[in-house]
Simulated scan of single mutants.
Amino acid sequence: MKAKTYVIGNFKGGVGKSTAAQMLGFRSAQKGRKTCIIDLDMQGNTSDVCSLTHMNFSSEEGGGDNEGLNFENTVADVLMNEAPLESAIYQVVNNLDIIPANIAFEMYDDWIKENYNSSIDQFKYMERVFAPLFEMYDVIYLDVPPSISVYSKSAMYLADWAIVILQTQVKSMRNAMQYLEYMEFFTEEFDTTLQVAGIIPFMLEASDAVDKEMYENAKEIYGNHLLKTIVLKNARLKRYDGSGITMEKTTKGRLKQWDRKSHELFDSILEELDEHETWYEE
């Protein structure tokens, strides 16, 4: 069975795309789904967080027992330097792998355009290189930079589903709409079947009147695509950027409150996304 593949997008930076990719990938793996995150952002933030996450788990859990990941090969090596695909796959924890990125991936835009003239040939090249992954995994998440670029367009071509991240700010609202409009154009132009799995409202201030008003506006604009689960501003999620994802336990073996709340939040998001996907089957 072919992996369900998701691109996580918005044309505005800093809205939480990478955080969503990391948490959805982690929670998907915890649910027993064989999951891969492909980092297509040259900043490599998701790769860094996954390396830190690996440190936080025991070898029995698939982690590194306080050792981070050493990324000898990255997505740039695979796509531009003919490194074997398997040489750039790293286990984060059980059921979760990452194909990392770093600043070397900045050269991919020039490289692919020098080697393949047409957009469709550029997209098909990445599809061909990554083809074995679709048989290896249940779920693949594509983390892309916030731009209309060969990276983001290739990801749209590969993906079955789009998850759009929405912050309740005017610019993010506008960029989310632009992303959806471009996605509609893209699917028609390149004859893909990309569908919207859902729009995640991200990093709202629970007590902020403007955020509340913007969220109500978003419900009118995006309708049923907007998830009911809201990611409020969350110190624990912010902490994961520097610590990696954690699942700290109490002395009684229970998950500590703030980790538990963060993980349950993304479990709810996964459930809503799964439900949304069934709408297209009717």
Rank of each mutant, 00 (worst) to 15 (best):
D160Q: 13
Q257F: 09
V164I: 13
V231P: 13
L226K: 04
S18G: 15
N45W: 00
K17C: 10
N102H: 07
E106W: 03
L85D: 04
L158F: 05
G62P: 04
F185I: 09
L270I: 14
K219M: 10
Y240H: 05
H225F: 11
F186R: 12
N94V: 08
V170R: 15
I140L: 13
D97H: 15
E220H: 05
E205I: 03
L255K: 06
F57H: 03
K34C: 02
I8G: 09
L24V: 00
E181G: 06
K2S: 09
F71T: 10
G9I: 01
K124V: 04
L133P: 14
F185N: 11
A83Y: 00
L96T: 12
Q257T: 11
N117M: 13
K12E: 03
L69K: 12
E213Q: 15
D274Q: 11
M203I: 07
E106V: 11
S147V: 08
D143I: 14
E216C: 01
V129W: 07
A104N: 15
V15K: 08
D110C: 01
Y280F: 14
A29I: 07
A104P: 03
S147R: 14
S147E: 11
I112Y: 08
K12W: 04
D110I: 09
S28A: 13
E60Y: 00
P201D: 01
M173W: 08
L79G: 11
Q122T: 10
H263G: 04
N117I: 12
N73M: 04
L226N: 09
Q91I: 00
K2E: 05
A159N: 10
T251K: 06
F186M: 10
R239L: 07
A29M: 05
V15L: 03
L227E: 06
C36T: 01
G44Y: 04
F202K: 06
A76G: 07
L142N: 15
K153V: 01
I8F: 01
Y240F: 15
L204S: 09
M42F: 03
S59C: 00
E127I: 00
L232R: 13
N115T: 11
K233M: 07
G63S: 07
D39K: 02
P146T: 08
I245F: 01
S154G: 15
K12S: 08
N234V: 05
A83M: 04
L52F: 08
S262L: 04
L69W: 06
I37Q: 01
E67D: 13
G32T: 11
L40C: 03
S154I: 03
F134Q: 11
I148W: 06
Q169T: 12
T168D: 02
Y215N: 14
L85R: 10
K17E: 09
H225L: 11
P100Y: 06
G242F: 02
M177G: 12
S243Y: 02
E184H: 11
